[in-house]
Design a protein around this nucleic acid. Structure first.
Lengths: 174, 174
DNA sequence: GGGCGCATGTAATGAGTTACATGATTGA
DNA sequence: TCAATCATGTAACTCATTACATGCGCCC
């Protein structure tokens, strides 16, 4: 949750947004960093308002639906900086899924296990290709940084899987 | 949740266990793969029982507390294999945290950002050292595999961070 | 006039954690 | 005798997702 708070506050640091706009921006630009859904975003913004970290301002243009515009408060900025320092400073033991199946690899006949891991490898390769296609996010240096990190991790996963597969296949051939 | 079901069924594939024993085993041997808590384990086992994937057998030794021993059913074995194939075959886009802060790196003065990232780097290095100290889990090949994958990912994260830090520092010196 | 985009939500549900409750045995 | 370990849970809470509800404006 802290990461999501950081994300929303960070977005609000640059300008005022309304909820729909924030969610839209996240979906279109930061979809690789978070999978936050619409109701979650709205609920979180409301929570931040209650905590005094953002202010809400209701606007209306003609007959269009009301917009709830959020503006970060000084307390919000303080909280943002604290969360940012904390987040940058800690290597959170990246509980990334995908390990559990490996534990039980022995329960499948080797050739079958190899088959499924090859499928996994192809998916990884596709993800990497997708990632490489993303154009540089120019003036927001941080986005490029985060994408570069993700790419490194994906590549490491791919490389590990490739070398593991070749050991497994060598074993099968014996 | 699927991963956790897979984990429990996988553990029950090798032998019968009671709840406490399973949780204990996970904590001591698989703490790096999952952070599943005790009440969660008990609740999940109960859910598996209701779903017919495991059978429960209550035992008592002398005056000791009752043990609820779980035994996997044929349906459980089928489900296990299906989940295993699914898990091995897919590269789940490793939503590993730690990216969000990077997005907003620009909001901190460069030297301060560098300071926090160096702190993160030291933590990563410690984690890696810990990982390397773990003795090989001999007869359970899968555990070694999973640990090796985690190590690869940690090392990739460290390498990326090192090279990023040196770019950032070069920039500061200019 | 029909569907998509804008704009905001609610309600139900699921999943998991924390803190707490209970009570026996074993070892220092 | 006192703490740790064995053994099982319940209750309250948090967090997030899915599915649903509403209604206007704009474009083809």
């Amino acid at each position: 949750m802290d990461e999501r708070t950081l994300l929303l506050l960070g977005i609000l640091m640059s300008q005022r947004w309304h909820g729909y706009q924030i969610h839209d921006f996240i979906e279109k630009n930061l979809g690789r960093m978070t999978g936050m859904k619409k109701p979650t975003a709205y609920a979180l913004l409301e929570r931040l308002r209650k905590a005094g970290l953002v202010m809400e301002h209701v606007e209306q243009e003609g007959n269009r639906p009301q917009r709830h515009v959020y503006i970060i408060t000084p307390e919000g900025e303080t909280a943002f900086h604290a969360l940012l320092r904390q987040n940058l400073g800690q290597a959170d033991r990246a509980r990334q899924g995908g390990d559990i199946g490996l534990l039980f690899l022995d329960h499948l006949p080797r050739p079958e296990a190899v088959h499924y891991l090859e499928q996994r490898l192809r998916q990884l390769e596709d993800l990497i290709t997708d990632h490489q296609q993303i154009p540089s996010h120019d003036h927001v240096y941080g986005v490029d940084l985060a994408l570069a990190r993700q790419l490194s991790l994906l590549e490491a996963d791919r490389d590990w899987l490739r070398s593991t597969l070749s050991s497994l296949k060598a074993e099968v051939r014996q």
